[in-house]
């Protein structure tokens, strides 16, 4: 497997987006929920394969629909987000496994970086930039809503809209990583670097910086290592990220 500059640019973009979006996922205690949330891409990928469309687009479409569904159900009913995600995304995994089978299913679950078309690169970089811009420009609103949604309301922040935009940014990030990490592992690249950063950082800027650094270095090191030991990229990336997390536990213990 050889690495191309375009592939490199896209994986850095994806890792930056994952690091940033993950900070708020971890601080909002939605670590497990976000892992499950990435599973919703599967039926979309399956459907896209059946219809001979690009799998990533199918995955993205399913993620967006799933996000709107969760957001809408949460506002209409009084069921907790955790419960909704548990039901909706397990269903997604089940439906997806029925639609995609064999090698296709393994690729969708674990990721399979192939060659990149120019439009895929452009779309991917635009998506990563959109997520990074969203998190960095909305960080103040996200911080206030994180501390208390009622305080956010009295500060003039449209809390429900902000929530929806955050979930959409999250879904977009997961979609960006599908080709490398697949449905099962992309949630981990969002959560593990941010969890590492939360453990080490003492301020918000520090957390952003550490999360992005861990996500980017795990992704790059993972790609290089996976190519040299002839293993699939996704699991290697996550193993490196997890190793950095464990190292951070030791580093903090003074």
């Amino acid at each position: 497997m050889t690495m191309s500059w375009t592939g490199l640019a896209l994986s850095i973009g994806m890792a930056v987006a994952a690091g940033l979006v993950g900070c708020f996922a971890v601080m909002r205690r939605m670590a497990l929920a976000s892992d499950a949330m990435s599973h919703v891409a599967l039926p979309g990928i399956g459907l896209a394969l059946v219809l001979h469309l690009h799998p990533a687009l199918g995955g993205l479409a399913a993620l967006l629909v799933g996000t709107l569904l969760i957001w809408g159900l949460e506002r209409q009913t009084r069921i907790s987000t955790e419960t909704l995600i548990g039901v909706v995304f397990s269903l997604a995994l089940a439906v997806g496994s029925m639609l995609a089978t064999g090698d296709e299913l393994v690729d969708a679950l674990l990721g399979a970086p192939g060659t990149l078309e120019p439009w895929e690169l452009a779309l991917g970089l635009a998506g990563a930039a959109a997520v990074a811009v969203f998190v960095l420009t909305q960080r103040s609103r996200l911080v206030i809503a994180l501390v208390s949604s009622d305080i956010a309301r009295t500060t003039g922040i449209p809390v429900a809209r902000l929530e929806l935009l955050y979930l959409l940014a999250f879904s977009l990030t997961v979609a960006l990583g599908l080709r490398y990490l697949g449905v099962l592992l992309m949630g981990s690249l969002v959560i593990i670097p941010a969890a590492t950063a939360k453990h080490l950082a003492r301020s918000l800027d520090g957390m952003f910086a550490i999360a992005v650094a861990v996500a980017v270095s795990a992704t790059l090191a993972g790609e290089v290592l996976a190519a040299s030991i002839h293993r699939p990229t996704g699991p290697v990336i996550i193993a490196i990220a997890a190793a950095l997390f464990l190292a951070s536990l030791l580093a903090r213990r003074r």
């Binding site: 601080m27 103040s140 911080v143 206030i144 994180l146 501390v147 003039g156």
Partner: peptide, 30 residues
């Protein structure tokens, strides 16, 4: 203009947000 101080909030002990971060968020939003 309403200032609201809610009942005791359930904040995680290890949140890497300083008091300054929180106050600065308000200056940037309002």
């Amino acid at each position: 203009r309403i200032g609201y101080v809610p009942q005791k909030l359930d904040i995680e002990r290890d949140l890497p947000i300083t008091g300054r971060d929180f106050l600065r968020a308000k200056t940037s939003v309002t």
